[in-house]
Design a protein around this nucleic acid. Structure first.
Length: 780
DNA sequence: CGGCAAAACTTTTTT
DNA sequence: AGTTTTGCCG
């Protein structure tokens, strides 16, 4: 096995162990005792339980530096795994800073996926792949599955490809190859899941391609079936570090355990309270089981929080305390009290966005009696990305600069994916998916029929589509305009393919030639739609991005793994992102909108995963609150548009779990004579004064009253008890009612306190009765 | 075969 | 509501 010599030769450390051994250790001085313990306990298994804001990354990087500094390992003998590219980048930078020099010798610091690609390229043949395999993204994956499903005559209406993709991903996350799928799962996907999974894997091999899950799965397979190879890596990686260990899935866990079995120098860092990726296969059990898995493990708890005020910490602790089976940490801080967590209710999502926009502007000016806060130091963290639109709309109209983190990604755009498909066809001819994508883009008169002919020919000759097309043309199997166009395309692919190997030609130049000669650029130039110029702009950007890579292949790999693009043009901006994307970040001021039952906690999460789902949602709430350093503002809206339909909801149950002494309830400004509650005619009549305080609002009280009976279907009898305060709940079928937003209508259905109302203007809606009033009650 | 309109999804979170 | 897939017609 020569790959180990290569590892030395190509990725050798710039600093030898000996040269570093005598270095001073200033990086230890800034550490608290717990952090220091986590750094200095170098041998054997270590579990670093690091609560939010406890200086985890600091400890982790100090540990890496310490390992090198004390001569325990050279930089290239340390395996340091993260989940996101951002985390990897940050760690690399911080190690560099601590060392006071550029570290080039940490080739094995990266995401699980990036490291696995590197390994798999070396050993691809062991799982039936060539080392230049392509990595399919979810889009390609889905298209491939659709093809298979159609070929199998499965009704993809009843058994959607998405579902199958989810099932297969689930298996891969558990490191299950088709032959290892447990019998209990055999019934999935109409009893054909395993079968199609097997076919899918075969097809991937034919395409010389892998999906995300395969990267881990194949490496686990290789390690399990080739002990010699495993052993070499076990020896090579003297120390293993894992970030966000609570997010590892079974495959990642097995991978790590296999690699760590030799020397057992594995240090896992994580926080069971921040495990929020159960839906993509993460097993909190991995971190809970650590001491069993690695007997004699040293467990270090980082509990001193350097980020948030006591009120914020207490609020977060109050919420997370509702979860069972935690490892249990007690975060503490030396910080001063600061502001309480602020809570505010709004009439609808738009008002919420409006209020938050105003609030952000006030904070930015410092007119809230606070020091002015830069927009860069404020963030809005939402549960689901569709919540972002309301904020974007509002911020655009008031001209408030914002940035969306983790939004639609550059490389997912149509034109970028098309362009890349061209590059893929040229660099890896077996990539049929890429060929299918571009064969008729731009339009070449090659419709379904022509494409089918190519497919058939390719299948008959047992080759890829490019080759199939070539054969088809040679036999004059395709005449007319389409034939000529196909000829042109194939000739182009051949020509460009030759240029890939041409040393004199830069890959940037080549990319331009491909896009140009294929007519792809021209297609957008001739396009009169308003988005065409933007697309051309993006293509330019793509070519520019190419400059930073050695060749097309290198670029394609980067793209498939690095999906985050943080292009920033300087100015201060508010950040908008999902709670998931916010993990690991911190901001002086944080807004947490949309705390409504059904949205957060997400109904789907609870339906699909029950109490486990709810607990994960709760951890998400914990993550959200703990992102805030000084000001944390939670809000909810009584009404929101979902799927273009108005829907009312109640404050999140998590709001109930906030300790009252750490919360300040705000009253929305009197835009229409009072905010939440007061805007509702019914409540105006009955409980005006109390509406000012959410803790006294019907919604709140009802929430309290119902806290115990959550999750059960609403018994009809409780209806009057729970909404008694309003005394307007007894609607009858057919009754004429009024709704602030929808106007007049008639009751056509009653279900607990939710009424179905046919509105005269707004159509049929389901509305919670307290937002309705009988027409006699309307004071105008 | 291509273009347009109707219909049928969607919205949880992502390497 | 917005986006993607389908279905029909020229």
């Amino acid at each position: 096995m020569s790959s180990f010599d290569e590892m030395d030769a190509f990725e050798g450390a710039t600093l030898s162990a000996r040269a570093m051994a005598a270095r001073p250790q200033p990086y230890l001085d800034g550490l608290n005792p717990a952090q220091r313990a986590a750094v200095e306990q170098m041998d054997g298994p270590v579990l670093m339980l690091a609560g939010a804001g406890t200086g985890k990354t600091k400890a982790l990087t100090a540990r890496i530096v310490h390992l090198m500094n004390t001569g325990r390992a050279r930089p290239n003998e340390i395996l340091a795994v993260t989940f996101t590219n951002k985390a990897a980048r940050e760690m690399k930078t911080r190690v560099g800073h601590m060392l006071g020099q550029q570290v080039e010798g940490m080739p094995w610091l990266g995401t699980f996926h990036a490291i696995c690609v590197k390994l798999l390229r070396r050993h691809a043949e062991l799982v039936g792949l060539k080392s230049n395999f392509t990595i399919l993204d979810t889009d390609d994956q889905l298209r491939l599955l659709k093809q298979l499903i159609r070929a199998e005559n499965i009704d993809d209406k009843r058994w959607p490809a998405r579902m199958l993709a989810g099932i297969i991903d689930g298996w891969k996350n558990r490191a299950l190859t088709p032959d290892k799928v447990p019998a209990a799962d055999a019934g999935l996907y109409n009893h054909r899941g395993t079968e199609v999974y097997d076919q899918y894997q075969r097809r991937l091999k034919e395409l010389n391609a892998v999906d995300f899950g395969d990267l881990l799965l194949h490496m686990v397979t290789i390690f399990q079936t080739h002990p010699d190879i495993l052993e070499q890596y076990q020896r090579w990686f003297k120390y293993i570090l894992v970030d966000e260990y609570q997010d590892t899935n079974v495959a990642q866990y097995l991978w790590l355990r296999l690699l760590a079995q030799g020397h057992r120098n594995i240090c896992c860092v994580g926080d069971d309270d921040q495990s929020i990726y159960g839906w993509r296969g993460a097993e909190v059990g991995n971190i809970l089981r650590f001491e069993t898995d690695f007997p004699g493990a040293h467990v270090v708890k980082l509990e001193q929080n350097y980020r948030s005020t006591p009120h914020i910490l207490a609020a977060a602790s109050g919420v997370i305390a509702g979860n069972e089976g935690r490892l249990g940490k007690t975060l503490w801080t030396e910080a001063e009290d600061g502001e309480k967590v602020r809570l505010i209710g709004h009439w609808d999502g738009e008002e919420e966005a409006r209020w938050i926009g105003d609030e952000i502007e006030a904070m930015q000016r410092g007119t809230r009696g606070q020091d002015a806060i830069s927009l860069d130091h404020m963030a809005i963290l939402v549960r689901a990305s569709h919540q972002m639109r309301a904020f974007e709309d509002r911020f655009l109209t008031i001209g408030l600069p914002y940035r969306v983190i983790g939004g639609p990604r550059f490389y997912e755009r149509l034109e970028i994916r098309d362009a890349m498909a061209y590059f893929r066809v040229v660099t890896s001819p077996d990539d049929d998916l890429a060929f299918e994508r571009i064969v008729n883009t731009p339009k070449r008169g090659l419709g379904d029929k022509a494409q089918q002919k190519i497919q058939v020919t390719a299948r008959e000759h047992g080759t890829n589509l490019v080759e199939g097309a070539r054969i088809l043309l040679a036999h004059d199997g395709l005449g007319g305009k389409g034939g000529a166009q196909l000829r042109l395309l194939i000739d182009g692919i051949d020509r460009w393919g030759r240029m890939v190997g041409d040393e004199a030609m830069s890959h940037v130049e080549l990319a331009e030639i491909i896009l140009d000669e294929s007519g792809y650029t021209g297609m957008w130039q001739n396009d009169k739609t308003p988005e065409a110029p933007g697309r051309l702009e993006n293509l330019k950007e793509l070519v520019k991005a190419l400059e930073q890579f050695e060749n097309l292949q290198g670029f394609l790999e980067h793209v498939s793994l690095i999906m985050d693009n943080e292009s920033d043009d300087g100015g201060a901006k508010v950040s908008i992102m999902t709670l998931h994307a916010a993990k690991g970040l911190e901001f002086p001021a944080v807004f947490l909108p949309g705390w409504e039952d059904g949205l957060f906690p997400s109904q789907r999460s609870m339906d699909e995963s029950g109490i486990k789902g709810l607990e994960e949602e709760r951890r998400l709430a914990y993550v959200g609150i703990t992102r805030a350093e000084a000001i944390c503002t939670i809000s909810f809206a009584a009404n929101r548009r979902v799927f273009g339909q108005w829907q009312s909801s109640m404050p999140s149950r998590f709001i109930d779990e906030l300790p009252e002494e750490n919360v300040e309830v705000l009253t929305p400004p009197g835009l229409y004579g009072g905010g939440f509650g007061a805007a509702m005619p019914t409540s105006n009549l009955h409980d005006q004064a109390a509406e000012a305080n959410v803790y006294n609002s019907p919604g709140w009280r009802r929430l309290q009253a119902r806290a115990g009976e959550r999750g059960m279907s609403q018994p009809k009898e409780t209806r009057n008890v729970t909404i008694d305060m309003n005394a307007v709940s007894s609607f009858t079928m057919g009754e004429r009612v009024f709704h602030q937003k929808f106007g007049y209508g008639a009751v056509i259905g009653i279900e607990g306190d939710k009424l179905e109302v046919e509105f005269e203007k707004a159509g049929t809606k389901k509305v919670v009765s307290r937002f309705l009033s009988g027409c006699d009650d309307v004071p105008f």
